[in-house]
Amino acid sequence: MKLLAATAVAAVALACCSVVRAYQRTADFGFDDSEQRQAQKAEFVWSRLAYTSRSGGNGYGWGWGRAAWSRDYPKADRQLLVAMKRLTRIEGRPYEQVVDLDSDAIFEYPWVYAVQVQAWTFSDAEAKRLRDYLNKGGFLMVDDFHGTQDWEDFMEGMRQVLPDRPVEDLQSGDEIFHVLYDMDDRIQVPGEHYIRTHRTYEKDGFTPKWRAIRDDKGRIMVAICHNMHLGDAWEWADDPDYPEKFAAQAFRVGLNYIVYGMTH
């Protein structure tokens, strides 16, 4: 009987947590979602890559919440855009843009952000489109995947896109860490689980990996943020329990990567 009661309490608590979490993910956080705002024309449009994940989800509705690509969406995106507006001269649209690889629409957005990339999968046509995008000058930032197995899964997709390009570790002196903010000293940025666990890593991703794939001229075309969760840091930056030092670095990295993508 006690076990049944405990299970019921746990189920109720889990349901409450899920509702709260769902609310957090879908509520109006003070952003203006008007059509006029969404249609605003600007130089920079934050675009998030939607892909078919290994679990099969990439759509909207119920799948919207479940699909791997939409982790932290849209609050993380919008909070970073707020920071970008305040801290740079980039004229950015305050409303994010979801792009996929089913059409050429991605070519309208030379900077794209992807998360949970251990889950991404591509058809041959999608891989070619992403390869063309990068070869033409597009910039891809990937984030929020952790540990050895995630890396292998990520690389499986990446090798489909850029089979011959090596991945290299970025050094502190690399231009991408100085284009806007000097970021010689970097720390591992954890997800919001840090509030509860005080653990900066997930899975076996103990060390943050700042990596990149470059083009023939040495310009970064894919910026890889492995073993860290910058998106969560942007999203939870307004949570008083989330340490400012993680959020501050996450914003700096995001802005540096945007400025780098617009200058190289």
Binding site: E43, F44, T88, R89, I90, E91, P110, G137, I258, V259, G261, M262, T263, H264
Partner: peptide, 9 residues
């Protein structure tokens, strides 16, 4: 005067 795609390309 501002980061722009034209500058990059």
């Amino acid at each position: 005067g501002e980061p722009r795609w034209e500058f990059k390309f």
